[in-house]
């Protein structure tokens, strides 16, 4: 169980990161490190929602692990797609 204060801080952090994301979307230029930074932000925001909004810290392991994995797997897939895009395209071309 979380306190109101912790939840409010988590919400404000998420709002702040969202605004930073908006700035990156408008001004950033393409590059691997930008992708890595965006992926890290995705994973962090996902973890904050999982821990403080969904409160899965004390939940059944099968629920906690799957949802936490989800929020890590997608950012990792994003980085892998940017790193190995041509190879993935080659492997998945009919």
């Amino acid at each position: 169980m979380h306190s109101e204060r912790t939840l409010t801080v988590a919400w404000l952090v998420l709002l702040g990161l969202t605004l930073i994301g908006g700035v990156v979307g408008n001004t950033g230029s393409p590059g691997l490190w930008v992708t890595v930074a965006v992926a890290a932000m995705m994973a962090f925001k996902g973890r904050v929602v999982i821990d403080h909004f969904l409160e899965l810290g004390g939940a059944h392991p099968s629920i906690r692990r799957l949802v936490r994995f989800y929020a890590v797997a997608l950012p990792v897939m994003l980085i892998l797609t940017d790193l190995f895009g041509p190879q993935i395209a080659w492997l998945t071309t009919l």
């Binding site: 998420l14 969202t18 994301g21 908006g22 990156v24 979307g25 950033g28 230029s29 393409p30 590059g31 930008v34 992708t35 965006v38 992926a39 932000m41 995705m42 925001k45 996902g46 929602v49 929020a71 997608l74 994003l78």
Partner: peptide
């Protein structure tokens, strides 16, 4: 949505 948002609106 937090996964969708950066993929379509943020990534340059």
């Amino acid at each position: 949505w937090l996964m969708i948002f950066p993929l379509f609106y943020v990534l340059p």
